[in-house]
């Protein structure tokens, strides 16, 4: 597992003491799950997948990757929220248009 893990990234864990005993970055898991429950669109899934990586990278010493996973989890949570807002607006427009016609 660890062997494959390291091969995949061709990188050693960061052994510097900079982030030792620091809490891992935010994984935005709440927002990813909310997106999968409210959106009907599985756009929250990438966010959740990245969220699942944040802590495991962090406690293995892959701090860079952990920060990147955190940023990606945030990005996909925002994408789902925006997509949700767009869908709601389109839906309301459709309802209004139908009401205007009918």
């Amino acid at each position: 597992m660890d062997y494959n893990f390291q091969q995949q990234f061709h990188q050693e864990p960061d052994y510097s003491q900079q982030y030792r005993n620091q809490p891992p970055p935010n994984n935005y898991l709440v927002w990813g799950i909310l997106a999968t429950l409210f959106c009907c669109l599985p756009l929250g899934i990438p966010s959740i997948v990245y969220a699942s990586k944040v802590d495991s990278y962090w406690y293995r010493g892959f701090y860079e990757e952990s920060f990147r996973a955190s940023a990606n989890a945030k990005k996909w949570a925002i994408i789902s929220a925006v997509a949700y807002a767009v869908i709601i607006v389109l839906y309301l427009l459709l309802v209004l248009a139908l009401a205007a016609i009918g």
Binding site: N27, I45, V49, A51, S52, K53, D55
Partner: peptide, 13 residues
């Protein structure tokens, strides 16, 4: 928020 639990949620979904 363990990786395995999160993945269980995704698969179940």
């Amino acid at each position: 928020q363990h990786r395995a639990v999160i993945w269980f949620y995704i698969v179940l979904y």
